[in-house]
Simulated assay, not measured.
Amino acid sequence: MKRKYYISGIGCGGCIARIKKTLEAHPAIEETKVYLNPKGATVIRMKEKLSIDELQKQLNSIEGFTIEKMN
């Protein structure tokens, strides 16, 4: 299943690489796409639905990023 999110705190391609690597380390996440345009737009493909809290907990291993659901 694919879900759309917004991640704040992204400033460059290096940030995107770190976020992608961190999120994809979670066993339930198959693929992560993070975009600079629009900045912070993110699509995550998961094997099972993860809550925002679970995704944020995964992101907390790298400081400075906050995830929220896109409408």
Results as ranks from 00 to 15, higher is better:
28 A>G: 03
4 K>Y: 08
66 T>Y: 07
56 Q>P: 03
58 Q>N: 10
62 I>E: 05
58 Q>K: 14
35 Y>W: 12
26 H>S: 03
35 Y>Q: 14
45 R>V: 12
29 I>M: 04
3 R>N: 15
45 R>W: 04
29 I>E: 02
45 R>M: 09
3 R>V: 09
34 V>H: 06
62 I>S: 02
56 Q>E: 02
19 I>F: 02
1 M>D: 09
33 K>C: 12
7 I>K: 00
15 C>W: 05
19 I>Y: 00
6 Y>G: 06
24 E>M: 10
15 C>D: 04
56 Q>A: 10
21 K>Y: 03
20 K>V: 12
65 F>N: 01
4 K>W: 04
45 R>D: 13
31 E>H: 14
48 E>D: 11
37 N>D: 07
71 N>Y: 09
49 K>M: 04
34 V>L: 13
10 I>C: 06
15 C>P: 03
53 D>R: 15
56 Q>K: 07
14 G>H: 11
65 F>C: 02
38 P>R: 06
31 E>C: 10
38 P>N: 08
7 I>N: 00
64 G>C: 08
31 E>F: 10
18 R>N: 14
23 L>F: 00
43 V>I: 15
4 K>A: 13
25 A>G: 15
12 C>P: 05
71 N>H: 11
67 I>Y: 01
9 G>C: 11
7 I>G: 00
20 K>Y: 08
35 Y>L: 14
59 L>C: 06
15 C>N: 03
57 K>R: 15
39 K>I: 11
69 K>T: 09
39 K>L: 14
3 R>F: 11
19 I>M: 02
6 Y>K: 14
45 R>G: 11
20 K>T: 15
18 R>C: 06
23 L>D: 00
46 M>S: 05
68 E>I: 05
54 E>T: 03
68 E>M: 11
18 R>F: 03
63 E>Q: 13
9 G>A: 09
50 L>E: 01
60 N>S: 15
13 G>L: 07
17 A>K: 13
25 A>D: 14
53 D>Y: 06
7 I>V: 04
46 M>D: 01
39 K>A: 11
65 F>S: 02
31 E>P: 05
15 C>E: 01
4 K>R: 14
32 T>G: 04
26 H>N: 13
64 G>S: 07
42 T>P: 09
58 Q>E: 12
62 I>L: 05
55 L>M: 07
64 G>N: 03
46 M>C: 05
24 E>P: 10
18 R>Y: 07
32 T>P: 04
26 H>T: 01
56 Q>C: 02
56 Q>G: 03
23 L>S: 01
36 L>V: 10
15 C>G: 05
26 H>D: 08
45 R>F: 08
69 K>W: 04
41 A>T: 12
53 D>M: 11
35 Y>H: 15
56 Q>W: 01
19 I>P: 00
44 I>W: 07
16 I>H: 05
39 K>W: 06
30 E>D: 12
52 I>C: 01
38 P>D: 09
